[in-house]
Computed example of a mutant assay.
Amino acid sequence: MTNDTSLAISIDKDVCIGSGQCALTAPDVFTQDDDGYSELLPGKEDGGGDPLVREAARACPVGAITVSEKGS
């Protein structure tokens, strides 16, 4: 997989428990809001080419993050 693939990243706020695993795994893409829940950093809606985005989704203990290739 190449890094120029545009991704669609979705965070289900109703499922997120704020464990922070995504922000620890891919800190250039994910952060936590004031309440501790996951959110994307501004401008990183497509993952920004970060190879750790999929790993961050896998690291989520409740599966709140979905990553797919745009157009698929």
Rank of each mutant, 00 (worst) to 15 (best):
D14L: 10
E69V: 15
V29G: 03
V15M: 07
D34A: 15
Q32A: 15
P42F: 01
T2K: 14
F30R: 02
T5C: 06
V62S: 13
Y37L: 15
G63D: 14
K13W: 01
L52M: 07
C16N: 08
E39D: 06
P42V: 05
T5G: 06
S6A: 15
P61D: 11
G47E: 07
T2M: 13
A8I: 09
I65K: 03
L24C: 07
I11T: 09
V15C: 07
R54M: 02
P61L: 09
A59C: 04
M1Q: 11
S38Q: 01
L24Q: 14
M1P: 15
T66M: 01
G20C: 13
L40W: 01
G47Q: 11
D33I: 10
G49R: 09
Q32K: 15
R54E: 10
S10G: 05
D33H: 10
Y37G: 01
F30S: 11
C60I: 01
L52I: 00
R58Q: 14
V29S: 08
Y37C: 05
G20P: 05
A56C: 02
L52F: 03
I17V: 15
V53M: 03
E55Q: 10
G43E: 05
E69R: 08
Q32G: 13
D46V: 10
S19N: 09
L7P: 08
E45H: 04
A26P: 07
T25L: 08
F30I: 12
C22L: 04
K70H: 03
N3C: 08
P61W: 09
S6V: 15
A23C: 12
L41A: 06
E45S: 13
S38T: 13
L41I: 14
A64V: 11
A23E: 14
L41E: 02
D50E: 03
D50N: 15
E45R: 00
P51E: 05
F30E: 13
C22G: 12
K44F: 00
A56Q: 01
D46L: 05
A56K: 00
G63E: 12
G71Y: 05
E45I: 06
V15R: 13
A8P: 04
V29H: 09
A64Y: 06
V67F: 01
C16D: 12
P27F: 10
E39Q: 12
G47S: 11
D50L: 02
K44W: 00
Q21H: 13
G20S: 13
K70W: 04
T2E: 13
A57R: 01
C16I: 11
D33Q: 12
V29T: 12
I9T: 02
P42D: 07
E55C: 00
T5R: 11
S38F: 00
G48E: 09
T2W: 11
L7T: 14
P27H: 08
